[in-house]
């Protein structure tokens, strides 16, 4: 039954018009990689361009949170919006299974879109030269980051009707604006954890790509984010009365 919800949610998420917007977004880094390949002057280290310029600045900072935001807030939020929530919650199914299924669906959608984009971008820009472990490292980081973001945004959509706007404010005001003004805020941002994981796995010199947080701390923090947000979402969902919000 859990898998049924996962597959139904995935079908709903992927069959929408806004998914095309996301595919367009995910194609951007690939396009950049193609242009880079066509115009490269051979002076710059392609590893630095890929790791720092594209993967970190565009993929992890932008494509990943936006994809997770769109899938994460829609996975459960759309059931409320469309009025199908009562039918879902009236099923003889533990609420925690519903929460887990929704997070899984959002995670799979996000990880699929972003992971494919990471793979294509990295291979196009780097193949034929020194690659280190940049592509697999960013693949793993993107997939783990996608899980943390998915859990966070599903949790937001349980708590708030306008989870999308609140998630946008988190991504662009907290993670982008405030962390650039006050670097200490990075200790509370999924983006920094994701970059920390990528750095720990990539095995490249620090001159090419560096992150603020260490590897172990980043893995731990990601796990903590998933556990806390999923736990809270389950708790709130468990006491949610169908009639009140649906």
């Amino acid at each position: 039954m859990t898998w049924l919800i996962v597959s139904l949610t995935l079908r709903q998420l992927l069959g929408q018009r806004r998914t095309w917007l996301l595919v367009l977004l995910a194609l951007a880094p690939v396009l950049i990689a193609v242009i880079f390949r066509l115009t490269t002057d051979g002076v710059r280290d392609p590893r630095e361009f890929v790791a720092d310029g594209v993967m970190s600045n565009v993929m992890i900072n932008l494509v990943l949170p936006l994809a997770a935001l769109i899938f994460g807030t829609a996975a459960l939020g759309q059931e409320f919006e469309d009025g199908t929530a009562p039918y879902l919650f009236a099923k003889p199914l533990a609420r925690w299974r519903i929460a887990v299924a929704k997070v899984l669906a959002a995670w799979m959608g996000t990880a699929g879109v972003v992971g494919a984009s990471v793979l294509a971008t990295g291979v196009i820009a780097l193949v034929g030269g020194t690659m280190d472990l940049i592509v697999p490292a960013f693949m793993v980081a993107a997939v783990l980051g996608a899980l943390a973001y998915a859990a966070l945004f599903v949790c937001l959509s349980v708590l708030f009707e306008r989870a999308l706007v609140i998630g946008l404010i988190y991504v662009f005001v907290w993670e982008a604006l405030i962390t650039s003004l006050a670097p200490g805020a990075a200790y509370l941002s999924v983006r920094a954890y994701t970059l920390g994981v990528a750095r720990a796995l990539a095995d490249t010199p620090a001159t090419i790509f560096s992150a603020q947080l260490g590897g172990a701390a980043s893995f731990g923090a990601l796990a903590l984010v998933v556990l806390l947000t999923l736990g809270y979402a389950i708790r709130r969902l468990g006491s949610l009365e169908i009639a009140r919000r649906a």
């Binding site: 710059r44 932008l62 769109i70």
Partner: peptide, 27 residues
Amino acid sequence: AFATVGIIVTFVFTLALAGVMVGELTT
């Protein structure tokens, strides 16, 4: 939701694209 995402993607995405195209590729 469509509209919000569409607007954000337009602004932020063009900003990131310009950042890479101008700041990194410089052709």
